[in-house]
Design a protein around this nucleic acid. Structure first.
Length: 292
DNA sequence: TCGTCAATAT
DNA sequence: AATATTGACG
């Protein structure tokens, strides 16, 4: 699965083997410094198919994994259900729906959103930037702009954490770390996917050995709505307040895509709130006694 | 490794 | 405002 993503006009230039001619660097890519980020998964949404095609071509020259789409609904569901690093989205004025979705998705997922639009008015730019877009490009976009913008966007993403692979590598490296010395430094693993010369399948890669591929393997922000919270409470009650620890709560809740950390966090906050309520009640009782 | 807490980040 | 992440500690 998951290879079926693109239904935009994908030029047949790179099929099968997957790697276009990179042997003799005669195109744009040799103008880049060698550390120009590759392999980013980019979703492009624009209602104009012709324009989509143009953008797609350019992005593919950057060795990006491009998915195009000219239908809003499809774009949104793609974003919801698949992992992307960057989304380029046509900024239409009019419907507030789009705004809402964009800001929602942008905040729930680790995703950089770049708006593209013909509208160069300050209002429009401000409007979209304030929904969480990381950048705003005005049509027509020149390839040079793209290059610069992406570099800049990627830098922001790096600063803010996890680029492409990383997490998978962490898990995959099931080796026993014999050295104790680096226990303080667990963070800085910023390794790019090395473009290994003999890899045949160089994309789709790491996502595969992520277990929960079934429905949605994304790492979304958990929303503790009434139902979920009820399951949580049920689990806590069932366990009894002394044995209600994150791991067991998680087991008993029997909900997919929730991590121990999620539960721990929720437990911490919920417990805090309960404590505060109790304290308030205590004070109330004192007060009632004192007034009579 | 796990659980808890507090502080901080997103 | 709601959740997540991190670091310290038992």
């Amino acid at each position: 699965m998951a290879e079926t993503l693109d239904h935009g006009g994908v030029p047949a230039s790179d099929d099968g083997g997957g790697r276009p001619s990179r042997d003799h660097p005669n195109n744009i890519s040799d103008m880049f410094p060698s550390n120009f980020p590759e392999g980013l998964r980019v979703l492009v949404f624009d209602e104009d198919p012709a324009y989509l095609l143009i953008l797609e071509r350019h992005l593919q020259e950057f060795q990006y994994q491009v998915t195009t789409c000219n239908e809003e609904g499809v774009a949104i569901s793609l974003l919801r259900n698949n992992k992307f690093d960057i989304a380029m989205i046509q900024a239409n004025n009019s419907n507030g729906d789009r705004i809402r979705c964009i800001s929602e998705i942008g905040s729930e997922m680790d995703l950089a959103i770049i708006m593209i639009s013909k509208d160069d008015s300050i209002q429009s730019v401000v409007k979209w930037m304030s929904t969480g877009a990381i950048d705003y490009l005005i049509k027509p976009i020149r390839p040079d702009d793209l290059r610069i913008i992406f570099k800049h966007v990627v830098k922001k993403m790096l600063g803010r954490r996890s680029l492409v692979t990383v997490e998978a590598e962490e898990k995959a490296a099931g080796e026993k770390s014999s050295s104790v010395g680096d226990s303080t430094i667990r963070n800085p693993n910023k390794r790019q996917r090395s473009s290994s010369p003999n890899a045949e399948v160089n994309e789709e890669d790491h996502n595969d050995h992520d277990r929960v591929c079934a429905s949605s393997s994304k790492k979304r922000r958990v929303v503790w709505d009434g139902e979920l919270h009820k399951k949580f409470l049920d689990a806590v009650n069932f366990l009894g307040h002394h044995k209600a620890v994150p791991k067991k709560i998680l087991e008993i809740m029997n909900v997919e895509n929730i991590s121990r950390e999620n539960v721990a966090s929720h437990l911490q906050v919920t417990f805090l709130i309960v404590c505060i309520l109790h304290i308030i009640i205590l004070f109330n009782n004192q007060y009632i006694k004192s007034v009579h």
